[in-house]
Amino acid sequence: MTGRARIPIASGLARREGLGFHSGGFAAAASPARSCYNRAVVPLLRQAWLLARNDLRQELRDLELVLTAAFFTVVVLVMFALAFAALPASAHVLAVPGMLWLGVAFAGALTLTRIFDREREADTLRALLTWPVDRVAIYFGKLLVSLSIVLGCGALLMPALALLFPAAQALVARPLESALLLLLGSLAYCAVGTLFAAGLATASGKNVLISVILYPLTSPALIFALVSTRALLEDHPQFPTYLGQLAAVDAVVVVLGAWLFEPVLLGGARKPAAGPSSRTRSRRGEAT
């Protein structure tokens, strides 16, 4: 399935597109002797890592995504603090998990709407799809990028919440557990988000729909994350169990996202001229 449409024009295109790949990685991926190993996990992750590193390197050059997401997180945090400052201290344990994950969800939606922007503006996603890269590697690469940005926002949120609300001390006092929780929760969110952001990026720029899709769809993962966070704050003995359940949701969502990425982007077995919605739209556009 994923082995189809592999055109060995890798390194030249890579240089022309100005994306700083190590040609070695792609030459290796493109050579027929190695291509049969592409299904194996290690080359896939390697490709994903190369793609993600390229994106992150570009990101580090202008810091657009990171800075806007971080600033947005701070703004959301301030709004939360203003809205919930008057809560009685006993309610903080209940409110802090909600604030944490709503913050992550908001910042994540912002990041995910932007994560494919560069591709859409330069139309490099199409170019990327003609590359001899496993499509799943593109998915994992983008997932890695969005995850790292969302994790950055979470790393900002957690200490700030601990500072603002004494009940959230555990977020700082038990950094290992908090980090794991943040990682698992954000992973589920980003795994769903990357898939739909990619789909909306190819569709002509209706990115608004991503929050419409994303919030209901990630609600189970966010609920698990909420429950786990509360267990962490209350030092509940079932915290590892909840974390395990969150990890199980992660596994389901990541596998599903990776599996659906190619059909969503390319249209499955054979490519139709256009979907019915675009047919209708184009016709209506002509009619009016």
Binding site: S204, K206, L209, I213, V264
Partner: peptide
């Protein structure tokens, strides 16, 4: 909503959404 207001190509995206759902 996605089926109704999504741009061209969103039929596949909507399908993915339905599978997830």
């Amino acid at each position: 909503l996605l089926r109704r207001y999504g741009a061209g190509g969103s039929d596949r995206l909507a399908a993915a959404l339905a599978i997830f759902g």
